[in-house]
């Protein structure tokens, strides 16, 4: 719309306030990371971000985040399906509690999961005889990241599932397809963009997650240290430049994921005809 046809007031002040606040709180502080890291020469930067202990933390963070997002994609889809398609007692409670990981402080989740999966915990005591240790092991990181990521998948798949036209399924059924075939060839292609978006959102959150993980991980160097913890460790040793270098790597990954998520959401909107 051309400037001359604007009837509503307040464009200048609100946009001005928005840009000022955004710059002061988010953009300038984030820029300081890149300026600080530029104090390092390229080879020094590379030495910091490719040190064995840091590389071990990337492997753990990315491996566990991918695994957790994959687990959430499977079980999150199941939960979304059950919430949309089936009637069962306690459904409203289950639906409301899906968002628990958004509302429960991460530190609380961390100590609760540790208590559950410790050797004498409710769940840990059953896993111990099987030789499975979760708390203070890399597997603990996975458990915490599954907890954190679950609502992302459920809440992106659920609305798409609710808006589906039943006509497609009826057409498939009248053509003789079984429910399995209908799901595989009719429903899954429509759900796929939302499922991938949820997967990527869960993954992006998991890579940066700190609070819930550090309690249950045990934080053993080279074995169960996540990348955000490496930043904290370097800060505690007053190695600000090193901390910033690792932070820069994480930020670049976050930005790449953000672009990917925006692309996936546009795809979801096109595939389902929803404009979000």
């Amino acid at each position: 719309m051309a400037r001359s046809t604007r009837v509503l007031p307040g464009f200048g002040p609100t946009l001005g306030l928005t840009l000022t606040w955004l710059s002061l709180i988010v953009l300038l502080p984030l820029a300081s990371v890149f300026l600080k890291a530029s104090n390092l020469s390229l080879s020094e930067f590379w030495n910091v971000v490719s040190a064995p202990r840091v590389v071990a933390s990337y492997k753990l963070s990315f491996g566990m985040s991918l695994s957790a997002a994959a687990i959430n994609a499977v079980f999150g889809l199941m939960l979304a399906w059950c919430l949309v398609r089936y009637r069962f007692p306690g459904k409203r409670l289950v639906d409301a509690l899906i968002d628990l990981p958004f509302a429960l402080p991460t530190a609380v989740a961390g100590i609760a999961l540790t208590a559950l999966y410790a050797k004498n915990g409710w769940i840990g005591q059953w896993l111990e005889p099987l030789g499975i240790q979760v708390a203070f092991k890399p597997l603990g990181v996975l458990v915490a990241l599954v907890f954190i990521g679950l609502p992302f998948v459920v809440r992106t798949v659920q609305p798409v599932l609710e808006d589906l036209d039943v006509e497609h399924e009826e057409a498939a059924a009248s053509l003789g397809a079984g429910r399995g075939q209908t799901f595989r060839y009719v429903l899954l292609p429509v759900l796929l963009p939302a499922l991938l978006t949820g997967f990527t959102l869960a993954f992006a959150r998991a890579v940066g997650e700190y609070g819930s993980v550090i309690f249950i991980a045990g934080n053993i160097p080279m074995i169960s240290e996540i990348t955000p913890l490496m930043i904290i460790t370097k800060l505690e040793q007053y190695d600000y430049v090193g901390a910033t270098a690792v932070a820069e790597v994480m930020l670049l990954i976050s930005f790449a994921l953000l672009l990917l998520i925006n692309g996936l959401q546009a795809w979801t909107a096109r595939r389902t005809g929803r404009d979000r």
């Binding site: 955004l22 988010v26 502080p29 300081s32 990371v33 600080k36 940066g208 932070a247 930005f255």
Partner: peptide, 29 residues
């Protein structure tokens, strides 16, 4: 602009703390 507003969601909380150390810490700007 909408993407920039969303930015804090995709930044690790640890980095959210770090940026203020880099700005206002003893060795910061």
């Amino acid at each position: 602009l909408i993407t920039l507003i969303d930015l804090p969601f995709s930044v690790s909380p640890v980095i959210a703390g770090l940026v203020y150390i880099l700005m206002f810490g003893a060795h910061g700007w």
